[in-house]
Design a protein around this nucleic acid. Structure first.
Lengths: 223, 223
DNA sequence: TTCAATATAGGAGATATCTCCTATTTTTCC
DNA sequence: GGAAAAATAGGAGATATCTCCTATATTGAA
C-alpha cells in the first residue's frame, strides 16, 4: 500500500456526497489517500487493522482461511464501500481483504476515529443500512445459488474475480470457495475452454465470451 | 398476536441487561408485551410493520416469496434478538417472519421510537454489532453448506424448524428453501424415516433420533 | 359441494458431482 | 540446488441430484 500525497485530490474525494454521508467533517484531517496495485493485501485475517478504509475505486476480494485449513473466497467488494468495519465494531478480524484490480482508498486511522465514529448516529446509521442491504442480498442470493449447478456459479465467480488480463486464482482455492471437488471444477473449466468461452494461458484464464458468462450468471439472479 | 397486560412482567423484561443494551429508558413507556402462538405471522412481506419487536423467548422463521414465485425459508431466529430492524432502517419489508414455537415479545411502536432509535448511538452500535455477527456467520456458514449433501443440510433444517411435536412445513417449501428438487427431498426424507430417525404422522414429521440429526448437522460446522 | 389448483408420492433414466487413484509440473523452503 | 509440499491434470466408477412422468390426496375458492 502506498500513501499518496495529493491534497487537492484528497479534498475532492472527502467532499463527495457518498463520503460525506459516512464521515463527520471533524475527521477530515485524519484521512489519507492510498493506492494499491493488483493482488495487494489490505487486511490480514487475525491481525488488527490500524485503518478503516473507504474504497473509492477498484475491486477487492474477501477471503478466509477456515479451521479445517481451507481457503475460501467469500465475497467481492465493489467501490464505493467501507473496508474494515468489522474490526471497528468487534475486535478480531475474521477475513482477509485483497485487491483484485488497482485500487484507490481513503484510509482513516482507527485509533483517531473509533470513538467519534461509534458515537456518530450518521455513521452508524449508514453502516447499519449497508449491513442490512448486504445481509438481505446475501441471504436471498445464497439461498438460490445453492440450487444451481457449478457452471452458473463459476461463471459468476469468474466475472467478479477477473481483471482485463484474466483470472489467475489457484484452482484449489476456487474449488474450495465454490464448494466443489477440484476434479469437478477442472472438468467444468475444461468445458468452458473447449467451448471457447475461456482461453487458457498457463495458469491464467482469459475471458473470451463474457456475454455467455454473463448469461450463465444471470440465470441465478432473483431480482 | 395478543398483547399482554402485565406491568410487573413488562418491567422485569425491560430491566434485563440485554434489553437495556439496546433501548434507552425514555422509550420504556411505549413498550408492550405480546405473545404469539405457533405459526402466527409477525411481519408480512411487503407490508409495513407498525412495531419493532424484541424477541424474549421462542423461535421464529424468516421466509420470502421470490419473484419467481418460490417460497424460501431463509433463516431462523432464536431469542433474544430484534425483529423488524430492516424496516426500521429501510422502508420495504423483504421478508416475512412467523413464529415456530410459542413466542414472547416486546413490541415498540415504530412511529414513536424511530427517531430516537436512529439517533441513539447505543442502539445503532448494538444493531451494527448484531448485523456484523450475522453477516460473518452467514457468509462463512453458507460458503460451506453448499458443499454438503442434502442429508446434512436437511438435518440442520429439521432441527431448527421443528417443535416438540414435530415439523409440518410443506415439503414443497422445504425443497425450495434447501435448493433441491421435491423428488430428491422426498427420497432423503424417506431414508430418515425408514432409518427410524424421523417418524411420519400424516403431514407431520416427528424427531425420534435427535442425536443423529445433530451429528449430521455438526459435520457442517466450521467453528 | 364441486372443481381446479396444489401437495404428496414414487418410478425410471439422465446428469452433476464425488471419491479414489496416479502422474506430472510448479512452488516453497532449507 | 534439491527435496518436500502443493498444484495441476485426468481416468474410472460410485453417489447425489435432476428431469420427466404418472397418480392420488388435500386444499381452497366459486
Amino acid at each position: 500500500m502506498k500513501f499518496i500525497d495529493n491534497d487537492d485530490l484528497l479534498r475532492k474525494h472527502l467532499n463527495s456526497a457518498s463520503v460525506r454521508r459516512y464521515f463527520p467533517a471533524q475527521l477530515d484531517r485524519h484521512f489519507q489517500l492510498a493506492s494499491l496495485r493488483q493482488n495487494e493485501q489490505i487486511i490480514r485475517q487475525g491481525e488488527k487493522s490500524a485503518y478503516l478504509y473507504y474504497l473509492l475505486s477498484g475491486r477487492c476480494k474477501v477471503s478466509a482461511v477456515m479451521e479445517n485449513g481451507r481457503t475460501v473466497i467469500i465475497n467481492s467488494l465493489e467501490a464505493p464501500c467501507l473496508i474494515g468495519e468489522i474490526e471497528l465494531i468487534n475486535r478480531d478480524v475474521p477475513f482477509s481483504v485483497e485487491s483484485i484490480t488497482e485500487v484507490l482508498l481513503l484510509a482513516l486511522p482507527v485509533d483517531k476515529a473509533r470513538d467519534s465514529l461509534l458515537n456518530s448516529p450518521d455513521f452508524l446509521y449508514q453502516l447499519c443500512s449497508d449491513l442490512v442491504d448486504k445481509e438481505r442480498t446475501h441471504a436471498i442470493r445464497l439461498a438460490h445459488y445453492v440450487s444451481f449447478p457449478l457452471i452458473n456459479r463459476l461463471a459468476q465467480f469468474i466475472l467478479t474475480n477477473s481483471t482485463p488480463e484474466g483470472m489467475q486464482i489457484k484452482k484449489t482455492v476456487i474449488a474450495e470457495s465454490l464448494g466443489v471437488s477440484y476434479r469437478h471444477l477442472e472438468k467444468v473449466m475444461n468445458d468452458l475452454v473447449s467451448q471457447g468461452t475461456l482461453e487458457k494461458q498457463k495458469r491464467n484464464y482469459r475471458i473470451i465470451k463474457a456475454e455467455y458468462l454473463r448469461s450463465l450468471a444471470q440465470q441465478m439472479e432473483v431480482f
